[in-house]
Design a protein around this nucleic acid. Structure first.
Length: 146
DNA sequence: GTTGAGCGTT
């Protein structure tokens, strides 16, 4: 009877689909997947929201820094490193913005500019791990006598 | 009272 054939086809159909899908899955496309995590060697781990500002004048304070950078975006954090003993400025500090765009804009605009008679050196701040020292990327040493 | 490359605390 034709009814039996119909039933057989209906029952076998899912099996065929399953087999075909398994075979397809067993043969992935020649598409090359990118590496899981790739860190560009020329760009150390840095916080794109925070800027490292060096070349500050000795008399520069957080107030002047904020006043100078607030025109490029929302400044969420401003910190100047002072000497623990003398209490005077160490000549560098950190300025964090609301987002990376403002930070990059401020860096591109203020890097090399003169403030309070001194040229600013701005770059993205390195990732600071709480409880750990700051990993400073050192320039490639010409000699390695390890 | 000085000096001038740099990457930090809560």
């Amino acid at each position: 009877m034709a009814l039996l054939e119909l039933l057989s086809r209906l029952r076998l159909a899912p099996l065929h689909y399953h087999l075909r899908r398994s075979l397809s899955a067993a043969a992935p496309p020649p598409h090359e997947p990118p590496p899981p995590h790739h860190a560009p060697p020329s760009q150390p781990a840095s916080n794109k929201h925070k800027l490292f500002v060096a070349g500050l004048s000795w008399s520069a304070d957080e107030r002047s820094l904020t006043d100078a950078f607030s025109s490029f975006g929302t400044v969420t954090e401003v910190r100047i490193m002072y000497d623990k003993n003398s209490g005077r400025s160490r000549g560098f500090g950190f300025v964090q913005f609301s987002n990376n765009y403002e930070a990059k804009c401020a860096k591109d605009a203020m890097d090399g500019k003169v403030m309070l008679g001194r040229a600013l050196r701005i770059s993205f701040a390195l990732d600071k791990v709480r409880g750990g020292p700051v990993i400073v990327p050192r320039l490639p040493t010409a000699k390695q006598d390890d």
